[in-house]
């Protein structure tokens, strides 16, 4: 009995140590927050178009109906990494024929317009989220964020931060390929 009690501290310390070792895995990101939306239906939202931009606004309805999964990208002209990501998204649309929708997050319409004129507009539809409320519905923590949504409106994947650089693009491409084979149920 006494021996067992005396051995208790070392046993607890070992268990703690095992958790620490696990926690040091370099692939683990202690700041990452999993989205609650994954495998859930996309949130309900209805956003008007950006004033002066010739693509229409965006609502939940627009995401559904196609056989292929679509991308929803949250961006803003004030967001520096978005600029780098813009080229990647444009390439995905032009080369891979991905359908891309945008949520313009808390941006001044004139700034967004200038940004799109300057860089080009790869988005099929863009909703203007002036007060950031749709952003909350999607549970975003910053911009940019990109979601992959299945044809039936189920959110399959979320990428936080810019999809820029070989590693990120590959990760995203893999997720997109998986989404294409998704037939309902758990991805």
């Amino acid at each position: 009995m006494k021996r067992a009690v005396a051995a208790l501290p070392i046993l607890i310390a070992l268990v703690f140590g095992a958790f620490f070792l696990w926690g040091l895995n370099p692939d683990r990101d202690p700041n990452a927050i999993p989205s609650v939306l994954i495998t859930q239906s996309a949130p309900d939202f209805d956003l008007p178009a950006i004033e002066g931009v010739d693509v229409p606004g965006l609502s939940r309805r627009d995401l559904t109906g196609s056989a292929e999964p679509v991308l929803v990208n949250v961006f803003a002209s004030w967001c520096v990494p978005c600029r780098a990501e813009h080229a990647v998204l444009t390439r995905m649309v032009e080369r891979d024929g991905v359908r891309l929708f945008g949520i313009n997050y808390k941006d001044k319409p004139e700034d967004a317009r200038a940004w799109l004129e300057n860089l080009g507009n790869p988005y099929e539809r863009i909703g203007s989220d002036l007060n950031g409320r749709a952003g909350i519905e999607w549970g975003i923590s910053g911009v940019p964020e990109t979601f992959i949504v299945a044809g039936d409106g189920t959110v399959l994947y979320r990428y936080v931060g810019p999809v820029v650089g070989a590693e990120a693009e590959e990760k995203f491409a893999t997720a997109l390929a998986q989404a294409r084979t998704w037939k309902g149920g758990n991805p």
């Binding site: 990101d29 990452a32 520096v80 990494p81 978005c82 911009v143 940019p144 931060g161 590693e167």
Partner: peptide, 15 residues
């Protein structure tokens, strides 16, 4: 260390 730069990017975005 890729997530550090990512965190930095997010913070930049929030600035």
């Amino acid at each position: 260390m890729k997530w550090i730069s990512l965190a930095a990017a997010i913070m930049l975005a929030a600035l």
